[in-house]
Simulated assay, not measured.
Amino acid sequence: MIEVADLRREFTVASQAGRFRRTYRKVVAVDAVSFEIAAGESVGYVGPNGAGKSTTIKMLTGILVPSSGRVRVCGLDPARQRRELAARIGVVFGQRSQLWWDLPLAESFDLLREIYRVPRTEHAARLAECVELLDLAPFLATPVRQLSLGQRMRGEVTAALLHSPELLVLDEPTIGLDLESKERLREFLAELNVRRGTTLLLTTHDLDDIARLCRRLMVIDHGTVLADGPLDELRDEVSPERVLVVDLERPVADLDGLPGVVSARAEAGGLRHHLAFRRELTTAAKLIAEVAGRADVHDIAVVEPAIDDVVRRLYGRRRG
Rank of each mutant, 00 (worst) to 15 (best):
V71Q: 10
Q98L: 03
T55D: 11
K58D: 12
V91Y: 07
I89R: 01
K53G: 03
I57R: 08
W100K: 01
L99M: 08
I63G: 14
S54D: 05
K53Y: 03
Y45N: 06
R88H: 14
V65N: 13
G69W: 03
V65W: 01
R70Y: 06
G52D: 05
F93H: 11
G90P: 10
R83K: 11
A51H: 11
V43Q: 13
G90S: 04
R88A: 11
V43W: 12
K53W: 06
V71R: 13
G69P: 09
S67F: 00
G69Y: 07
G90N: 05
G69E: 02
V71L: 10
L99H: 07
I89S: 05
S97C: 05
V73L: 02
A51M: 08
P66D: 03
P78Q: 06
K53V: 04
F93R: 01
C74M: 14
S42W: 15
S54L: 09
Q81P: 11
E84R: 13
R82L: 01
R70I: 00
P66T: 13
P66V: 14
G50E: 11
P66E: 04
G90L: 09
A87G: 06
L85Q: 06
S97H: 08
A86I: 02
K53N: 05
G75C: 06
G75Y: 00
T56W: 13
G94I: 08
V73N: 09
G75Q: 08
L76F: 07
Q98Y: 05
V92W: 00
G47N: 08
D77A: 14
I57S: 09
M59F: 13
L76G: 04
R70T: 14
M59P: 05
V65M: 03
I89E: 04
Q81S: 14
A79T: 07
R96T: 06
S42G: 01
G47S: 08
I63Q: 07
